[in-house]
Simulated assay, not measured.
Amino acid sequence: METPVSHAHMISIDATALRGWPLPMPSSEGDKEQRGHVLVLGGSREMPGAVILAATAALRAGAGKLTIATGASVAQLVALAMPEARVIGLRETPEGGFTVDAIDALDPLAGKIGAILIGPGMQDETATAALVRALLPRLEDCAIVLDANAMGIVRNPDRADDAAPFRFAVPVILTPHAGEMAHLSGQEKADIAADPVPVASHAARDWNAVLALKGARTIIAAPDGAMWQHEGGNVGLAISGSGDVLAGIIAGLAARGATLAQATCWGVALHARAGERLAERMGLLGYLARELAAEIPSLLEQLTQG
């Protein structure tokens, strides 16, 4: 099935659009490798839970194999919380990031993973940018999702002030909300929220990224000019950890073989629908980000079967 996009207008992501854009499915004899191997890189002493939320969501989205790379100070905690995962402990900077020698620990995985999510719970934007910059050439054969602090590479914080404008050599996925987009672009948050379409479109083109500009109306833009929008979810999704779950869903779908745009559009829709389900059962406010991922498998089944 061809990607349902149009360069003449924006496609609304609804059940009909999703069913016309089916996700890759493993064969009935497929093993965990065929379902896709996802690596989640993130976490810190202050925010170890972010990688747990993201990694859980990646598995709930259908990925078959999970590796987590996180700070050595919290690696054992994360391993106990995620018995499904292999957990790698990385050396940390004093500010809570990872040192560039993390490359040595991650290099052996480069040819084995289908998708990598970098950013949930990471601190030290400068160290994170340096690590992402070093990783990118090694990861050109897998889907890359950058979230939270890892998106800061587009600002070149690890380079001199006269560094050239940043552009990814190979497209990646970025998932900023309006506040993060203001930080990345230098524009005002209020202006971005008021008119997100041109902001998302220009950033996707300039940075060579599939960009999901999150909000009550989420705009997804691709480097070639294709655009989608999603309206749905509820204010209950505006809670700590919700973005980590969304990024994990997207990474899990990409590990299964979805294209960058497809994984992003499906991920945004699934995340919103999970919030709607929880609000129906529990109320609009008060459900937790950790509860979102459990809704994903049945939503996938529902949207797949019609």
Rank of each mutant, 00 (worst) to 15 (best):
P4C: 02
V5Y: 05
S6A: 09
A8L: 09
I11D: 03
D14Y: 06
A15Y: 06
A15L: 11
P26I: 10
S27W: 02
K32V: 03
V38L: 08
V40N: 03
V40P: 01
S44K: 07
A50T: 09
A50L: 07
I52F: 00
A63V: 12
L66A: 09
L66E: 12
A69V: 13
T70N: 09
A72R: 15
S73M: 06
Q76R: 15
Q76I: 00
Q76C: 07
L80D: 02
P83D: 07
A85Y: 07
R86E: 10
R91F: 00
R91N: 10
T93D: 06
E95V: 00
T99F: 00
I103K: 05
D107A: 14
D107T: 14
A110C: 15
A110Y: 02
I113P: 06
G114M: 12
L117P: 01
G119D: 07
M122S: 04
Q123K: 14
D124L: 02
E125S: 12
A130E: 14
A130T: 05
A130G: 12
V132T: 07
R133M: 06
A134T: 01
A134N: 07
R138L: 13
E140C: 11
D141K: 15
A143Q: 15
L146W: 03
A150M: 13
M151I: 15
G152E: 12
N156E: 13
P157W: 13
P157A: 13
D158T: 10
D158R: 01
R159D: 14
D161P: 13
F166H: 14
I173M: 11
I173E: 02
T175H: 11
A178C: 11
A178H: 15
L184D: 13
L184T: 13
S185D: 11
Q187G: 09
Q187P: 00
D191S: 15
A193W: 00
V197N: 00
A200N: 09
S201D: 14
A203P: 00
A203C: 14
A203Q: 10
A203F: 10
R205D: 15
W207L: 09
V210K: 04
V210A: 03
L213M: 12
A216Y: 10
A221I: 08
A221Y: 08
P223M: 00
D224H: 13
Q229D: 13
E231A: 03
G232V: 00
N234I: 01
V235Y: 02
V235F: 03
I239K: 15
I239Q: 11
G243C: 03
V245L: 06
A247P: 02
G248I: 08
I250D: 03
A255M: 12
R256Q: 15
T259W: 03
A261T: 15
A261M: 11
Q262P: 04
Q262S: 09
G267L: 01
V268G: 01
V268K: 02
H271R: 05
H271Y: 06
A272I: 04
G275R: 01
G275C: 04
G275Y: 04
G275N: 02
E276A: 01
A279Y: 04
R281N: 04
M282L: 14
G283Q: 10
L285H: 12
G286I: 04
Y287N: 00
E291H: 11
A294S: 13
S298F: 08
T304D: 10
G306M: 05
